[in-house]
Write a protein that binds this DNA or RNA. Structure first.
Length: 419
RNA sequence: GUGGGCGUAGUGUAGUGGUUAACACGUCAGGUUGUGGCCCUGAAGAUCGUGGGUUCGAUCCCCACCGUCCACCCCA
């Protein structure tokens, strides 16, 4: 028997209501903020991710679905959305559009990871990117967008954490201090963190080890190393976020000096939304500023900021919080036929559909079974067509949901009756 | 990639080293002649994840693989 590849999922009809709800909400919120949709290819040149995401990152080093096509080019199933959106920005000359260019995407991402709940090899992201404006108001806008999205979905009890990881130049000095600090306690550090200290000192900050966490709380803070513009930027952002509290009563944030991000291209603002009772793979939405990226990819120096949000994780949280979905679309009519009225029933079904009334034929079974079927599929009405109705040119309309009585109406008026 | 738990009909579970693997839900049929939802009866549906091994004999014991879940790693 064939099975779906490891870490992939069928989104069955029974789950589509969640997907529709989330995607609809994402599109609506994006529209409110003036973000327009962009779709980029599922495959990109491998080089784009090596350059954009960062050659040293885990994503590039060990999680990409990379293959050589028949022409000998190395292609990769996109592991994240930002690099491709930036590529499109450069390639399509979007610097000639009014800045910033606001775009969003709803798209599948691929990473060769070990699956877990909330961690898949193919997952879908709602992402938003604002490119071409480096001011703090854009940072606040993206954070507000993320907040609005999650809130409008009905999710509550989540935390927004923010931090600034400074500009690359400032980070050099900061990283030095950080390394010094942790080196003093090297003997107290668990093995994993000693290794991290060498490879990615920032990562030591968000270690899961208790001992490290205590040390990390007292570690030098990147926000204390901000200078000039990046300091102003940070302070403006905090002011803007405080302003959001006036407008959205439930808006709140915490500055978390241990928040870092895994992708190389981030600078300054980073942020993350996660459920309060977050388990291992809890992060619902995360992003940050990536001012160096466009230039790294060969464009003019252009600031940018964005976030990605895993739809599967959002849906897990919707289920966790038992958030009711808007009513799902149901059939207007199931047509039940008695005796040899079946072809007339088929014709009636077609006529209704041509008038955009949803209608299906009950399966060719006993009358009782057909009625049961109409009930099972939760149709609004059963339309009964038998010899009696054929003779009088009518159809019996039986409402299936409430206790309204069955009525007999002429074939011609069925359409208006159901509408 | 590391460590650990789990893997029995569509779903959720029970069960045993030895003839026909159980229950619930779901599905289908029937409970007479044209009316669903409740109820009753019956039926179909499982090579007990896959492949090896131990044994006279394995769904049950052992190993490997696959899948899934948890923690790490990483990240959305």
């Amino acid at each position: 028997m064939f099975k779906k590849p490891r870490g992939t999922q069928d989104i069955l009809p029974s789950d589509q209501a969640y997907w529709n709800y989330v995607r609809r909400t994402a599109r609506a919120v994006a529209a409110d903020f003036g973000y327009e949709r962009i779709d980029t290819p599922i495959i990109e040149s491998t080089h784009l991710f090596q350059r954009g995401v960062g050659d040293e990152t885990d994503i590039v080093q060990k999680e990409m679905y990379t293959f050589e096509d028949l022409g000998g080019d190395s292609l990769t199933l996109r592991p994240e959305g930002t690099a491709a959106v930036c590529r499109a920005y450069i390639e399509s000359g979007m610097q000639n559009l009014p800045q910033p260019v606001r775009q969003f995407y709803l798209a599948p991402m691929f990473r060769y990871e070990r699956p877990q709940a909330g961690r898949l090899r193919q997952h879908n992201q709602f992402g938003a990117e604002a490119i071409g404006d480096g001011s703090a108001s854009v940072d606040a806008e993206l954070i507000e967008l993320g907040f609005a999205y999650i809130s409008r979905l009905g999710i509550s009890d989540f935390t927004l954490r923010i931090n600034s990881i400074a500009d690359p130049a400032e980070r050099v000095t900061y990283l030095g201090e950080l390394r010094n600090y942790f080196s003093k306690y090297e003997s107290d550090l668990p093995g994993v963190d000693r290794a991290r200290l060498e490879r990615a000192p920032l990562r030591v900050l968000d270690s899961k080890e208790r001992a490290t966490q205590r040390l990390a709380d007292e570690a030098p803070r990147s926000v204390d190393h901000l200078e000039g513009e990046s300091r102003d930027h940070w302070e403006q952002l905090l002011g803007l976020l405080d302003g959001l509290k006036q407008i959205y009563p439930s808006f709140d944030y915490v500055v978390d000096h241990r928040l870092v991000r895994g992708l190389d291209y981030y600078n300054r603002t980073v942020f993350e939304f996660e459920p309060k009772d977050a388990g291992g793979q809890g992060t619902m939405l995360a992003g940050g500023r990536y001012d160096p990226l466009i230039e790294i990819l060969g464009g003019q120096p252009t600031p940018g900021i964005g976030f990605g949000s895993g739809i599967e994780r959002i849906i897990l949280e919707l289920k966790e919080q038992e958030i009711p979905l808007p009513e799902r679309e149901s059939l207007d009519a199931v047509i039940v036929s008695v005796g040899d009225a079946r072809s007339a029933a088929a014709r009636l079904a077609s006529e209704l559909r041509s008038k955009r009334i949803s209608a299906i034929l009950a399966p060719n079974r006993s009358f009782k079974a057909q009625m049961r079927y109409a009930n099972q599929v939760q149709a609004a009405n059963a339309l009964i067509l038998g010899e009696r109705e054929l003779e009088s040119g009518t159809v019996a309309v039986k409402p299936m949901q409430g206790d309204d009585p069955q009525v007999e109406i002429s074939l011609e008026s069925v359409e208006s009756h159901l509408k």
